[in-house]
């Protein structure tokens, strides 16, 4: 089955194992986690579409979507994502500082 190798569909068992580590391995939670993964990717794809439309760059869309595709085939993104969203002060400060940096670039340099 070639298709299952690139999808996240084969990863169900791995996903379940990962979630059991945190004590939330029942089927409902795993389903919810998978939904989260799909929403994350889906919104990334949509954002890529939007960006490519705003900047009128077809190439950006293609490159972005293929990067997302590679991301999908390698690993579940969502656990990484959860780590980044933890409430450890240092990680929060890291993201805030990245945010202010990106914001200042967006407002000042890209006008």
């Amino acid at each position: 089955m070639i298709i299952s190798k690139v999808g996240i569909f084969m990863k169900y068992d791995e996903f379940k194992r990962e979630m059991e580590k945190e004590g939330t391995g029942d089927s409902m939670s795993v389903g919810a986690g998978l939904t989260g993964e799909i929403i994350l990717y889906g919104s990334l794809v949509m954002v890529m579409f939007l960006l490519s439309r705003v900047f009128s760059e077809v190439l950006l869309a293609i490159v972005g979507i293929s990067i997302i595709g590679i991301g999908i085939s390698t690993m579940p993104l969502i656990f990484k994502f959860k780590e980044e969203n933890s409430n450890q002060m240092n990680i929060q400060l890291f993201w805030i500082s990245i945010f202010v940096g990106v914001l200042s670039v967006a407002l000042y340099l890209a006008k």
Binding site: E22, S43, I78, F81, N85
Partner: peptide, 16 residues
């Protein structure tokens, strides 16, 4: 706002 929507939902899906 897109970030708020997506991050909130994805994190909520993972909560116990």
């Amino acid at each position: 706002s897109i970030g708020g929507m997506v991050f909130g939902t994805v994190m909520a899906l993972l909560q116990n």
